[in-house]
C-alpha cells in the first residue's frame, strides 16, 4: 500500500483529499501545518507528499526546502497545491524543489489521477 503525506491546514480540504485517496487504498497521513508535515516527513517514508502552499508555522515552500536540504531527501515526490496559479508562482514552486503542481480549487478526481500517475511512475 502506497503511503502519502498530506499537509493542509483547512480541515475540510484535508478530509476531501484523504477521503478521495483512502477510497483508492492509499494510506494517508495528515498534517495540519508545515511543522507537523516536516516532522512526519523526517520520521516516515512516503511515496508522495502533498503540500498546501499557504500553511501556518511553515509555508509549503519552506517545507519543500527543508525536506530537500535539511532532510536531504531529494527523491521523495512532492505535489504542491496552491491558489497561486500564475505561471511565475508555479515556476517558483518548481524551482524550490516541488515535482508537481496543482491549482486550487482542484478536482479531487483529477488529483487522484495525478497521484496514481505519480505513484505508479515512481
Amino acid at each position: 500500500m502506497k503511503r502519502i503525506l498530506l499537509a493542509e491546514d483547512e480541515e475540510i480540504l484535508r478530509m476531501l483529499v484523504t477521503d478521495t485517496l483512502e477510497d483508492e487504498d492509499y494510506e494517508v497521513d495528515e498534517a495540519e501545518d508545515g511543522q507537523q508535515a516536516l516532522e512526519l516527513a523526517s520520521r516516515n517514508h512516503y511515496d508522495l507528499i502533498i503540500l498546501d502552499y499557504m500553511m501556518p508555522m511553515l509555508t509549503g515552500l519552506e517545507v519543500i526546502e527543508a525536506i530537500r536540504t535539511k532532510l536531504n531527501n531529494k527523491s521523495v515526490k512532492i505535489l504542491m497545491l496552491s491558489a497561486k496559479s500564475q505561471s511565475y508562482e508555479q515556476e517558483k514552486i518548481i524551482q524550490a524543489g516541488a515535482d508537481y503542481f496543482m491549482a486550487k480549487p482542484f478536482s479531487p478526481l483529477q488529483l487522484l489521477e495525478k497521484v496514481k500517475g505519480i505513484v505508479n511512475e515512481y
Partner: peptide, 25 residues
C-alpha cells in the same frame, strides 16, 4: 485581492470537490 481569492477558493474547493465526489462515486 490575493487574500480574498484564497479565502474564497478554500470553501469553493471543498464545495466543488465534495460535489464531484458525490456525483462520481
Amino acid at each position: 485581492v490575493s487574500t480574498v481569492s484564497h479565502e474564497l477558493r478554500t470553501p469553493l474547493a471543498s464545495i466543488l470537490g465534495f460535489t464531484e465526489l458525490m456525483l462520481n462515486r
